[in-house]
Design a protein around this nucleic acid. Structure first.
Lengths: 238, 238
DNA sequence: GCCCGTCGTTGCGCCAGCGCAAAGAGGCAG
DNA sequence: CTGCCTCTTTGCGCTGGCGCAACGACGGGC
């Protein structure tokens, strides 16, 4: 069955025996997200853990000025709200479904029981949350110490890794991705993103259209993400 | 014994029976940090999990331009490098000992064995890492959407919660805290921090000296952390 | 006491990035 | 096709905050 494979490959359930997977599926609820609605909202009591089956979730927080901050995207096989299962309290972010997103969801009690019954799952969960923590710390460092262009380059590379699809002439980021989205991921404005992308397009590094970005020279992007000191002439300071 | 109580109160070991605590202590190594040295460094293979007994650790990452970014401080009873125990790989940050810091450390293998033998510890670890994740996400949001003054206000409030000590005329942040430190915590420069603190001092909100900050009107700081739209210095103020 | 190293302050110039406005470019519904 | 709506681009002015430099203040070592 398809769900079995999906779960078996997911980070939360990898290494679990098939009976365990079957048990997990049996006590899950399958759910199709309302088109364009929020699956759960920041600040609501956290009741459900989700694994995306098809589609994608966008996790956001709302900044103090009302602007949205995108934490990350959750694709098929990935889990979200994992951390709420144990520290309880409230959802730390809002999850938006993009397109017809199908998910498996477990209530907190159910998932707690599963984790208790199958220690391998608890260890998986620990690893999962650890990875996420590492990732957020990394992005925190970027935001605290890097310039906008550099952060946008990194965001694009991350998206390539997550949703890249090879097309002729480069790698397409295979999801609708507006300038506003990129701005919300990198802590800047859509105007600045637009200007930066235009610049890169004129240099032949990327090619972009409406909610669509193709990386033509990934290696060029990597250079931008790694190097790019504040402004270029620093390389040969006396 | 003192260590038993410390562990029993720590988030990692809370709820564990005394024999478990004793077992944990028995297989830990007690370690005194070299004065002013790094306990472990970002990028090194992660071998040890630490719990601070006395003193404090400062966790930093180094920004691409070489500037340091402070992730957080680790006080007595708190653990660090917890996430490395399972996802392995490398330390995600450098830990600096401040003053004569004493710690209990466990090797990765030992801690893994402990967690396996005592599921309550694994659940504690999960909760611990979850809380940390939540916290870092929160700071990410701040950095992405708030102005410098607001972020500094929040950083001070966080420090008060962690190391505040009531003194006459306000609350002292009971640790050496330079402008540079505050800058590294909030993603700005020591100059800007200095200017902001001077401003607040002239408004009677804080009182500061060399590596020393006293909050005189916490409520004023909270207002700065919450409100303070881009600028509205002299609007209605009761 | 004195020296020296670190920390803090402040004035000044400057620029990366913001904010707005106005106009273009797709895409979708009817 | 037409109209509408959203996304994008780009010019322009502005400013928050950076970067430096110079100076002042504190504290520890001897």
């Amino acid at each position: 069955m398809r769900l079995l494979d999906l779960l078996g490959d997911s980070k939360l359930f990898q290494g679990a025996d098939r009976p365990v997977l079957a048990e997990a599926i049996a006590c899950a609820r399958e759910q199709r997200a309302a088109v364009e609605g929020a699956v759960f909202r920041e600040g609501e009591p956290a009741e459900w853990l989700c694994i995306v089956v098809t589609g994608r979730l966008k996790l956001t927080q709302v900044g103090s000025d009302g602007a949205e901050v995108i934490l990350r995207f959750v694709g098929p096989g990935e889990a979200t709200a994992a951390l709420t299962v144990f520290d309880g309290a409230v959802y730390p972010a809002t999850a938006w479904a993009e397109g017809g997103t199908r998910m498996l969801v477990w209530s907190r009690e159910t998932m707690q029981a599963l984790l208790r019954a199958h220690p391998v799952l608890a260890l998986n969960a620990l690893r999962l949350v650890s990875e996420r923590l590492r990732e957020v710390q990394e992005r925190f460092r970027e935001l605290a110490s890097e310039r906008v262009a550099q952060r946008i380059a990194r965001a694009l590379l991350r998206l390539v890794r997550q949703a890249g699809r090879k097309v002729e002439g480069g790698v397409l980021i295979d999801m609708p991705l507006s300038r506003r989205d990129l701005a919300a991921m990198t802590g800047t404005t859509l105007f600045t993103v637009s200007r930066v992308l235009s610049e890169w397009e004129s240099q032949g590094i990327i090619e972009s259209g409406r909610e669509r970005v193709v990386i033509k020279r990934p290696h060029g992007l990597v250079a931008l993400a790694e190097d790019l000191p504040p402004s270029r002439p620093n390389a040969e300071r006396p």
